[in-house]
Simulated assay, not measured.
Amino acid sequence: MHGDDRGSFLEWFRADGLVTAAGHPLKLAQANCSVSARGVLRGVHFADVPPGQAKYVTCVSGAILDVVVDLRVGSPTFGEWEAVRLDDAERRALYVAEGLGHAFMALTEGATVVYLCSESYNPAAEHEIHPLDPDLAIAWPEGITPSLSPKDAAAPSLKEAREAGRLPSYADCVAYYEGLRLSASE
């Protein structure tokens, strides 16, 4: 980020940097912008793999707690999650690969999140896990009452989604990632 008395400038996405980190480019199919009131909790969302939906996420105004959950059955880290604060001060961004679940909570009023997606929204292939599932035990910020959409509030637990066969397999995801790497090198 470069700043002076006029303001600041940053490159919030660089294809070459993502290729270095992920091993393949991000196919851009859709760009989304979400504005949320403080406490709004969106997710945990994921899509069928293949093709899945990779996301490159940043918060351009305000702050969020962004959470990625490993939903890939058979993964050594299945059911584990990582959280990172994304905000308009540090200007960090996060890449979410296909097969991983994505959720965030707005920490400020009017938190504005923009994200690039590798595939267009396909309601038939989109799924969710309840973000307050006690088995996931995501450490959402204390002192903020979560506000969920009716769809997210009715989402199944991780266990229920797994038993229903809705979760992606680790083997399918790894094969898909390898296909992305191979097609990028051609």
Rank of each mutant, 00 (worst) to 15 (best):
V60E: 00
S61T: 11
G62E: 04
I64D: 03
I64W: 04
I64H: 00
I64C: 05
I64K: 01
L65C: 03
D66S: 08
D66T: 08
V67L: 07
V67W: 02
V67R: 01
V67K: 01
V68H: 00
V68L: 15
V68D: 06
V68F: 01
V69A: 02
V69H: 00
V69N: 03
D70G: 10
D70E: 11
D70C: 13
D70T: 13
D70P: 12
L71S: 06
L71V: 06
R72N: 09
V73C: 08
G74Q: 07
S75F: 12
S75D: 08
P76D: 12
P76I: 10
T77P: 01
T77I: 06
F78I: 03
G79N: 11
G79V: 12
E80P: 00
E80D: 14
W81H: 15
E82Y: 10
A83R: 11
A83I: 06
A83Y: 08
V84W: 02
R85L: 12
R85V: 15
R85A: 10
L86N: 02
D87P: 03
D87H: 05
D87T: 10
D87G: 09
D88G: 02
A89F: 04
A89N: 06
E90P: 00
E90F: 13
E90L: 14
R91E: 08
R92Y: 11
R92A: 14
R92H: 14
A93C: 12
A93L: 04
L94K: 00
L94Y: 13
L94G: 01
L94P: 00
L94V: 13
Y95E: 00
V96Q: 01
V96C: 00
V96A: 01
A97F: 06
E98Q: 15
E98F: 11
G99Q: 06
G99Y: 08
L100A: 10
L100E: 11
G101L: 07
G101Y: 03
G101F: 07
H102I: 03
H102D: 08
H102W: 12
A103S: 13
A103T: 00
F104Y: 15
M105L: 15
M105R: 09
M105Q: 15
A106P: 05
A106V: 09
T108C: 06
E109K: 04
E109L: 11
E109A: 14
E109H: 09
E109G: 04
G110Y: 03
G110R: 12
G110I: 12
G110C: 08
A111I: 01
A111K: 07
